[in-house]
Amino acid sequence: MNGAVVEARNLTKRYRDVLALDDVSIRLSADRIYGLLGRNGAGKTTLMSVLTAQAFATSGDALVFGEEAYENDRVLSRVCFIRESQKYPDDFTAFHAFKAARLLFRNWDQAFAERLIGDFGLPVKRRIKKLSRGQLSAVGVIIGLASRAELTFFDEPYLGLDAVARQLFYDRLLEDFTDSPRTVVLSSHLIDEVANLLDHVIVIDQGRILIDAESDALRGSAATVVGPAPKVNEFVTGMKVLHREALGPLASVTVDETLSAAQRTGAARLGLEVAPVSLQQLVIRKTLINHPSRRVPGGDAELDSMEATR
């Protein structure tokens, strides 16, 4: 049932002296929602461009629906990539853009597009150049949803959309995904907003895959322990520390560990509080700890032991 929709092996993309993708291998399965997360410049857009044949990899290969995507209409008619700043011809209105999309995507659902136009209150006869940032994003969101492409990429689709419009997007995406399952890749900075929608999380940092895991496996995979510093230090001995904060005699330490029931009971006995770590916090911690300027020669283990003795 969950065949590979995308199979990318050792993708590397170099722009002059910048290594945008560094030996990236990922596999996307059918009918799942993926979150592609990472900082600006981490390589998210480059990865999506390469997978949708809008950019060439320097080395490595990517198969989409089992085939090379470049100039391959069999593949590309099933793929939709909504760019963050999609460019349209100068005299285009949203109406023109939807008409073009209708020709391009074989699963296009016109009735759904019209419902979404109403939902977002989009002025379809105004030239796209004259639309606000939020309205421009709405054009992309509508195309991305109504195209019903078997593989759909949304690159930060929410720019300029207010909270109500974003919720509308998430709700329509989920509804329509339930009715017509497909593979969706959602690149986002608003991790907390999308966390519950995701089957799977891919975090990219400096062109490398940092996390590639089921979102439910990540949930509860880290915890923050708060309490008197000596007791906290005693408790986290031997654990992988992601972050440490101090407030007077109190310490708050985030560990990269799934705490067992016995460990939680132990923490309670020491008078420590254990708080969950949100996906967004986890991504921030893991990205920061991965950053070379903070990396200590000898690697993470050394960093941890240094932090633990501080």
Binding site: L174, F177, N196, L197, D199, D216
Partner: peptide, 17 residues
């Protein structure tokens, strides 16, 4: 499952699980 997914705004596969 789909009702759970819509109500809690979660992925339907997660609700099914």
């Amino acid at each position: 499952t789909n009702e759970f997914a819509a109500f809690h705004r979660i992925n339907p596969a997660t609700a099914a699980k």
